[in-house]
Design a protein around this nucleic acid. Structure first.
Lengths: 119, 119
DNA sequence: GACAATACCTATCAGTTCGATGTATGATAC
DNA sequence: GTATCATACATCGAACTGATAGGTATTGTC
C-alpha cells in the first residue's frame, strides 16, 4: 500500500504515455533526452527511468503513435521520436480521459460545499 | 497499453485509498455504501468494485487508519468505517503527494507559455 | 587507465487493481 | 411460493503497470 516519501511510488497508469506524447508534441526528442525532460518539466515531481521510457516509446511506435528517425552524433546513436497524426488523436483522447478522472477526484477532495476544507 | 473507453482502465495508484479516506472523513460509511458513494461522487467517472473497496478497507483498518463498528440492519450486517486520527494524518500526506504530482502533470499538459494550447 | 556521462536496450519483480465468484438475507415480481 | 434482484459481506487469481536492475558501447574527464 503505497508508502509516501519515495520519488513516485507507482501512482498512475498511462501517465508515462501521456507525458511522452505531450512533450514530443512540442518538439521531437530522443529517449535519453526525454528521461531528463520529464524530470525537468515536472520539477523532479516525476522521475521516470529509462526502463519505463524506452519500452513505452517502442510500444507507441509499434502502435503508430510515434515515428522515429536515427541520427548519430559524436559516435552515439540517437533515436529521435515525433508524434504522428494518429498519435495526436491518441493524445487528445487520453488527455480528455485523464482530465475527466482527475477532475472527478478533485471534486471529491474539495468535499461538499457545506464542509470547511479539510486542508 | 491502457485502451481508452472502458469505465476506468487502471489509471492511478493509491487513488482508491485517497477517495475512501476522503469520503469517510465526511461521515462514516459501510463498504457497500462506499462503492456507490464513489460512483455517485465522481459522476460515474470512477467506478471501483467491491473487489477493490473491501480489501482496501481491511488494509486501512489493519494499518490503523480506519476503525470499524458492526451493525445489523434488517437482518443484514453492515460494517461501518470511520477515519482515525492516524488516518487523518495519512490522508493529509497522500493528498499532498497527489496534488504535487497532478499539479506537475497539469503544467506539462498546459505546455510552455509560447505554445498555443493543444486542446 | 579508471570513471562518469551519454545513449541505447531488455528482463524480471513487485504492487495494484480488475473481474469473477461465493455466501447469505430481505424484498419484489410473477 | 419461488424466482429474481438488491443488499452486504468476502476472497482469489489474472492482468497490467511501472520500478529496479542489469547489460552493451562510446566519449570525455581526471
Amino acid at each position: 500500500m503505497a508508502e509516501a516519501g519515495r520519488p513516485n511510488p507507482n501512482f498512475m497508469n498511462g501517465v508515462p504515455e501521456l507525458l511522452i506524447l505531450r512533450l514530443l508534441l512540442e518538439r521531437e526528442m530522443y529517449g535519453y533526452q526525454l528521461v531528463r525532460a520529464i524530470r525537468g518539466a515536472t520539477g523532479e515531481a516525476i522521475a521516470l527511468g529509462e526502463g519505463v521510457i524506452y519500452p513505452a516509446l517502442h510500444a507507441l511506435e509499434a502502435d503508430g503513435a510515434l515515428a522515429s528517425r536515427r541520427e548519430t552524433v559524436a559516435g552515439r546513436t540517437r533515436v529521435y521520436y515525433r508524434v504522428t497524426t494518429g498519435g495526436r488523436r491518441r493524445l487528445g483522447r487520453i488527455t480528455k480521459d485523464y482530465s475527466r478522472i482527475t477532475g472527478a477526484i478533485r471534486d471529491v477532495l474539495r468535499g461538499p460545499p457545506s464542509e470547511k476544507p479539510a486542508f
